[in-house]
């Protein structure tokens, strides 16, 4: 079997992502479409929450990807720091705005859900607070990338920030729990007895979650391809300047 590290070569990565990106985009559209249609129109309404519960099909997958995007950035940063694969650093860079958007979607859908349920758009609940803090971490990370001109320096510094930020993001999560016990319901996919959702809800939710995962993949691949092309343009420009 070929080594996974082969795809650290920009050429091979471009070739692979050239067909993987549209494929995952189409699959993501199909799965999210199917999941949403199933979830919105062919499931029963909750006896307490009515139809508003159905926003769960957007809320939970986006929240899931908001966290997973950071985890992916952490892994990509580690790969960059240890093995110096440029594609890895660029993938981390491309994932940040996607993760920030997912966090924002999770916060917005949460607010829309929370308004009829809790009677407020926003509450300083630990989960909500943690997500807001996560959003700030994304902003800082993106800002650091955009502030540094030299791409390798930027990759190094943002990677360290991602590592340190991960530790403090986890700390913030526990600090937020310590600080306020909160209104938010338990984990939506909890398997604890009495908390588990009905299968008719879980199936479309799983579809949407896989769809969001593929959507994330497609967006990150597209972003990484753009970054690789930008790096190539930059390298060409530097060379031309040096020749002049």
């Amino acid at each position: 079997m070929a080594s996974l590290w082969e795809y650290a070569n920009p050429v091979k990565f471009m070739r692979l992502s050239g067909w993987l990106m549209p494929l995952s985009a189409v699959l993501a559209a199909a799965l999210i479409g199917a999941g949403l249609i199933w979830g919105l129109f062919f499931t029963a309404e909750d006896y307490r929450m009515g139809a508003s519960v159905k926003i769960i099909f957007l809320h939970v997958p986006s929240a899931l990807m908001a966290i997973n995007a950071w985890a992916m950035m952490l892994i990509a940063s580690l790969i960059w720091l240890i093995r110096r694969h440029h594609v890895s650093a660029l993938a981390a860079k491309a994932a940040a705005p996607v993760g920030a958007a997912m966090t924002l979607i999770a916060l917005l859908t949460g607010a829309i859900w929370g308004q009829p349920m809790w009677g407020t758009w926003w509450a300083w609940d630990p989960r909500l607070t943690s997500f807001l803090i996560l959003f700030l971490f994304y902003l800082g990370y993106i800002a650091l990338w955009s502030a540094i001109d030299d791409p390798d320096t930027a990759a190094d510094l943002t990677s360290v920030l991602c590592l340190v930020g991960s530790v403090f993001a986890v700390l913030s999560r526990y600090a937020a729990i310590f600080w306020n016990q909160g209104l938010h319901q338990g984990a939506s996919l909890s398997v604890a007895p009495g908390e588990r959702m009905d299968l008719s809800y879980r199936m479309p939710l799983y579809l949407c979650m896989i769809g969001f995962g593929l959507l994330f993949l497609a967006l990150v691949l597209a972003g990484t391809r753009t970054e690789i092309r930008a790096r190539r343009a930059r390298a060409l420009l530097t060379r031309e300047r040096a020749r002049a």
């Binding site: 700030l136 800082g140 650091l144 502030a147 320096t153 930020g165 913030s172 526990y174 600090a175």
Partner: peptide, 24 residues
């Protein structure tokens, strides 16, 4: 942010989220 021309504001954006657990 030490090498950056106007690093002060960016540094606040980076440092303040890290300060949250300590503050809480």
């Amino acid at each position: 942010t030490v090498g950056l021309k106007r690093g002060g504001l960016l540094m606040s954006l980076l440092v303040l989220p890290l300060y949250m657990p300590t503050l809480v």
